[in-house]
Design a binder for these strands. Structure first.
Lengths: 258, 258
DNA sequence: ATAATAGTGTCTTTTAGACAGTATGAT
DNA sequence: ATCATACTGTCTAAAAGACACTATTAT
């Protein structure tokens, strides 16, 4: 912390300062269940939660023990909350290089019994196969994937039920309004794979309908066909592969069709 | 702050805590210049900034003196950053009951020379006429409205240029993708007034074209005509008034027209 | 009468939506 | 041959886009 003559009068000590600054991460993955050979996978959106241990590393009873919680931890003064989230994701699961997106601040005075603790919430999308190398941290007894339906809302630590609720809303919105779906997919993918990702969070009939979606994907400005590339992983018939291209999408509710 | 046997082992003092927790607000307004009678107004998006005084209330030289800054201040432990933003907006301008929207956290370690200070950024939309009752706070020598073009990016305090840049991006996006435009408009409005608001942040030809927009507004599910209500404030011809209706709008880049 | 804004008529083009049908290739 | 998936053909209805045109009313 810098300090010099000019600024010393602005010593912030006259204001109460927070007792802690933490960063939480909602780690989402989509599990692809391959029901049979040569068929598109059944996909489901899942959230990784950590079961809080009964005792901490020093043998003392842990706060909110036994409840499920988002991974996270204290932010240090040398980093931003987003960097902390990225670091903790890496510590928690061994995964690096995944984009981490901030989506909210949780600073209700009574949200944490330990004091005035401000938490920044982020979400990250991790491909399923990378989660196999996951490991629990000191404070966590167990790690598990929950689908949105099987979440036990009343067994969540702190205000994590509110944070998770917001996280699901944000990822759903972002999946439909941005190209983050690409985080769930391989570099190139078939129309049915993209469709399966989107169907985890929407039941829009224009997306659900095979023919409509297969036609529509060709006219989307942010997706292009990978010429000459085909795969048989979703059908016996070699299938066209697509990829996302960087485009800024400007949409408006005033010009769109309703 | 609560403290009991169970939680005392989790004393957060072993972590460094932030030196301050602040809340900043980008106060936007749209100035309506009535060029002549019976004509739609010329509108322009403006941002309210405060010029930092040379000396503070105790007569000490002020940090970042003379630069322009967003209104804001320290958050107290009894409130959330959003409540603080609302309170400060009220103190700053005397305006109550305006929705304040959080859009980002600024926590770069070196962003404030006074220490490790975390700022939550919000934006608020204030109807122009309410800004006339505005008054400067202790720390501020002057208050002024800037259009996006006339902003002096290199004369802004702290990292406020980055915050303002993000604020403009967020409000532009929200104007096109949500119904916040209503904050800039009276309860009921003509198509040309809504059009003027949107044209402050877009030049989409479907919005710019009079006939197209006048037709489109009738088919938008979140806008309805106010039956029997007409006004002559935008033309000699009595003109249909519209209002926003509460509807949840779900859009997707995969189903929209491009 | 003029000028300016609001709004309609009408035509063309594009897209959505539905449904039937064809193509492919492992089994 | 069968079957599931990946397409294409074709029709209809709706909407977008363009442009000319009419309507109203203070001045």
């Amino acid at each position: 912390m810098k300090s010099n003559k000019e600024v010393k009068h602005y010593d912030v000590s006259r204001y109460r300062t927070p007792d802690g600054y933490t960063s939480d991460i909602a780690v989402f993955t989509i599990t692809s269940e391959r029901t049979k050979a040569y068929a598109p996978p059944k996909m489901e959106l899942k959230l990784m939660l950590i079961k809080r241990a009964d005792y901490d590393t020093e043998g003392n009873p842990n706060i909110e023990a036994g409840k499920w919680a988002l991974p996270g931890g204290f932010v240090t003064p040398e980093e931003t909350a987003q960097e902390a989230a990225s670091r903790e994701l890496s510590e928690e699961t061994g995964i690096d290089g995944i984009p981490v997106k901030h989506f909210g601040v949780y600073d209700q005075p009574e949200r944490d019994p330990r004091g005035w603790i401000i938490s920044n919430a982020h979400y990250a999308i991790v491909p399923e196969h990378q989660l196999f190398s996951r490991k629990a941290n000191d404070d966590a007894a167990d790690v598990e994937l929950f689908s949105v339906e099987e979440l036990e809302w009343n067994q969540l630590a702190f205000d994590h039920s509110a944070i998770i609720c917001d996280a699901i809303a944000h990822i759903s919105r972002d999946l439909l309004q941005t190209t983050v779906a690409k985080q769930f997919l391989p570099e190139s993918f078939t129309y049915s794979e993209l469709q399966a990702v989107l169907l985890t969070i929407t039941d829009d009939k224009a997306i659900r309908n095979e023919q409509a979606f297969a036609r529509k994907i060709k006219s989307l400005p942010f997706i292009e066909a990978v010429e000459g590339q085909k795969t048989q992983r979703t059908s016996k018939l070699p299938t066209q592969l697509y990829r996302f291209v960087e485009t800024d999408i400007k949409q408006s509710i005033y010009t769109a069709r309703h």
